[in-house]
């Protein structure tokens, strides 16, 4: 069974992002970039499928700038067998990324596509679902448990009310939520080995994909700051304030 796992290069989750001084976009100059944490969980799940003998090959794919090779090397160090970079310097929207991934699916014919439920930069939470529509495959988003047996995936999903279990015939798309697994750290020997693994580069043009953006970013702003509050001395004062000043309890 072949697994395609998609990864995205994003601002590291520990970085506090700031707007550019002209407020046109996020300031990404000299900011640490990493693999999107949800994508890392997807890679880990792929590696575990291979370790269980369910998967035979893991292909990592990223759509982004040349530097996305770093994130693909991370995926290779974690256990992916080879990688594909769909290289573009444009900032693509989820629909365009999904179209690129669809083209990769057509050439690679994976049995399952694993990806993160969302990227922590745009917080769109769209690409997996869109790839589902474009390929016609079933989708199981926000997965917290994945089992593969007899050509079917059984997925436990995290939904607002609790947990939902779905069964999907393969090929299917599964997007990872936080609790799917805890990714390992890549060992030094594996990082060295990853440098020699195959990494092919293609472009949206080569794939015949229209990547024109539909949405224009007009600007960014900082969210409204909350006015500083006060410290209360004890519970009695707190209860008094909540009753008589804020009037939120009676």
């Amino acid at each position: 069974m072949k697994v395609l796992v998609a990864v995205k290069r994003v601002v590291d989750y520990n970085v506090k992002v700031r707007p550019k001084s002209d407020m046109t976009d996020v300031d990404l100059a000299n900011v640490k970039m990493s693999i999107n944490p949800f994508c890392e969980i997807a890679v880990e799940e792929a590696v575990r499928l291979k370790e269980k003998g369910v998967a035979t090959e893991i292909v990592a794919v990223s759509v982004g700038p040349q530097q996305s090779q770093e994130q693909l090397r991370t995926a290779l160090a974690l256990g992916a067998d080879r990688a594909i970079l769909v290289n573009t310097d444009e900032t693509l929207e989820p629909l365009a990324i999904a179209k690129c991934l669809k083209a990769v699916c057509e050439s690679e014919s994976p049995d399952i596509i694993l990806m993160g439920k969302q990227a922590i930069d745009g917080d769109n939470n769209q690409t997996g679902q869109m790839l589902g529509a474009l390929t016609g495959y079933g989708q199981a988003t926000f997965a917290s448990e994945l089992t593969i047996e007899g050509g079917n995936a059984t997925v436990i999903r995290e939904v607002d009310g609790g947990l939902q279990t779905l069964a999907l015939p393969l090929p299917a798309i599964v997007t990872a939520d936080l609790r799917l697994n805890e990714p390992r750290y890549a060992s030094l020997p594996n990082i060295m080995k990853a440098k020699k693994k195959q990494l092919d580069t293609t472009t949206p043009v080569d794939l015949g994909v229209d990547i024109a953006n539909r949405v224009t970013l007009l600007g960014v702003e900082l969210p409204a700051e909350r006015a500083a509050g006060i410290k209360v001395e004890d519970i009695a004062q707190l209860v008094d304030k909540l009753k008589n000043e804020a009037k939120v309890i009676s």
Partner: peptide, 23 residues
């Protein structure tokens, strides 16, 4: 933007060939 809508709406958008706007 409940988990139900987050699951369905991007699929709707791609079927219509439009870029959804989340949240």
């Amino acid at each position: 933007a409940t988990t139900t809508a987050k699951n369905i709406m991007p699929r709707v958008a791609a079927l219509l060939d439009v870029q959804a706007i989340s949240d």
